[in-house]
Nucleic acid binder design. Structure first.
Lengths: 102, 102
DNA sequence: AAAACATATTGACATTTTTCTATGCGTATG
DNA sequence: CATACGCATAGAAAAATGTCAATATGTTTT
């Protein structure tokens, strides 16, 4: 799994806004449609729509269209990719100091 | 571990900028001082200093002052907290649909 | 077919973030 | 002790992001 720096930022942007974090908390109880999410968030409908796009772009959330409703849920595949990515980017290969002052 | 939505955003802001992701890649080979990081990034010194502050605030990176040098490294404790947080926020408790259209 | 409904898109504005130049502060060195 | 060095801070400009009102799009219902 070789993700670019840009791709990594897209994934973690999902968790860089308080409202989006709150959306995760709401989705933890299962799939919800946008209208239901809207009830619990102090946001306008277009703003929610914008956040859901950011979340879907990250891969951490997936949308499922059913008639005129959009159902959103947390993607376990997306979560696994994010976890692997976080693990990979924070892994340290060596431990000695490489500084100019060594 | 009960982190607020705000605290979560502070952690993951570390990975929302391409330059900061690149800094992680550089630190994966071990501790580096700011002057050395600066050589590999196309950034001014104050801009790097700003990014290092964001990284340290996230807890994913720690700084160690030695004389006039600042040595930065990836924090494994910080990484563990971020991993736990990501796991927790993407966990799903129920799987049935809770939508208004159920 | 028209009306109602759920969501997305557009365009504008406010806020936040990124970036730089200039400067300040602490530490080491001549 | 004066100077140089490494890094942080202040302030300003530019870019990106979050937000909303208005509107568009697609779907269901009457």
């Amino acid at each position: 799994m070789e993700l670019s720096n840009k791709q990594i930022t897209v994934i973690f942007k999902a968790l860089c806004d308080e409202n989006r974090v709150q959306i995760f908390r709401l989705l933890q109880n299962g799939e919800l449609c946008a209208c239901h999410l809207l009830e619990d968030l102090h946001l306008s409908q277009p703003t929610l729509s914008h956040h859901m796009k950011v979340l879907c772009d990250s891969g951490l959330v997936v949308g499922r269209k059913e008639g005129k409703w959009m159902h959103y849920s947390i993607s376990q595949e997306g979560a696994k990719i994010a976890m692997d990515c976080l693990k990979e980017i924070t892994a340290v290969n060596k431990s000695e100091c490489n500084c100019c002052n060594k």
